[in-house]
């Protein structure tokens, strides 16, 4: 089993606050990896470091063996490493189909293709992915008129049509109606199995992450606290202490 992302010795501080200290982790290819930790433990900071939102102070981040810690967001995204946002970001004024069409991958696009219309199979593919996340009926509505949960699903669909190799999801279930969560877990798993997309998920909901992930990393106070299979993490004394605040 190869590692898709390798983070080794990454540190990041904001002013005097150390958000990440000497973090190392591996995201194995083809699997679902979880990242948990109490609020303020540096999870989103680590995500931002990986996708290129800010520079890191030290350490190295590789994606499929290629160093990416100096690259910028669009370059990294074109390699096939995509993220969703904690606060969903979609194009509110455009309808869902247009949102999907924008997200069609431009990795190997020849220059002149930017003037072409979208081919029929792309439209079909967009429709089928919207079907997959359950938004087919709403595909011609302005994306801004969808509920928050539906917008999250749309953002997920936009990520899927981009055909990433790996998708970094920042709290996919936050703000989603609890009755919809099971459906979402199912879709995430199918994205992993059917579409072959490696997932790396930040999640607060323990039930969700324990169900979903093959292996889990736990951060606390910017340090790597624990790593293991879901049941190992669940029974790890340090993790429980960190979450209960007994530190």
């Amino acid at each position: 089993m190869t590692d898709m992302i390798e983070v080794s010795g990454v540190s990041k501080h904001y002013g005097g606050v150390i958000a990440n200290n000497q973090i190392s982790l591996n995201v194995p290819s083809g699997r679902i990896t979880g990242l948990i930790g109490p609020n303020g433990s540096g999870k989103t900071t680590l995500f931002n470091s990986i996708v290129g939102f800010h520079p890191i102070d030290e350490g190295s981040i590789t994606f499929e063996g290629q160093e990416i810690s100096k690259m910028r967001v669009p370059q990294i995204a074109r390699l096939g490493l995509l993220r969703t946002f904690q606060q969903t970001r979609i194009y509110g004024k455009m309808n869902c189909m247009d949102n999907m069409m924008i997200s069609v991958p431009q990795r190997h696009m020849p220059l002149m293709r930017m003037f072409k219309k979208f081919p029929a199979e792309t439209l079909e593919r967009a429709e089928s992915i919207l079907e997959f996340v359950g938004l087919y009926q709403k595909r011609l509505l302005p994306a801004g008129s969808l509920s928050f949960g539906q917008q999250k699903l749309l953002e997920f669909a936009m990520a899927l049509i981009n055909e990433p190799k790996i998708l970094l999801l920042d709290e996919p279930t936050a703000g989603i109606n609890p009755t919809l969560i099971n459906g979402l877990i199912d879709r995430l798993r199918r994205a992993n199995e059917d579409f072959g997309i490696t997932l790396f998920v930040i999640e607060h909901n323990m039930r969700v992450i324990m169900n979903l992930a093959d292996n889990i990393y736990c951060l606390a106070h910017g340090e790597m606290l624990a790593h293991g299979k879901p049941d190992e993490i669940q029974n790890d004394k340090r993790v429980i202490d960190a979450y209960l605040g007994a530190h």
Binding site: V51, L82, M94, P105, F115, N162
Partner: peptide
């Protein structure tokens, strides 16, 4: 009528998101 307009509209509405999706 095609990709070009959708993409430059996307740049107008949220350029950061467009970059995060790997758009050139």
């Amino acid at each position: 009528s095609g990709r070009f307009k959708t993409t430059i509209n996307a740049i107008r509405d949220d350029e950061e998101k467009a970059e995060a999706m790997g758009i050139h």
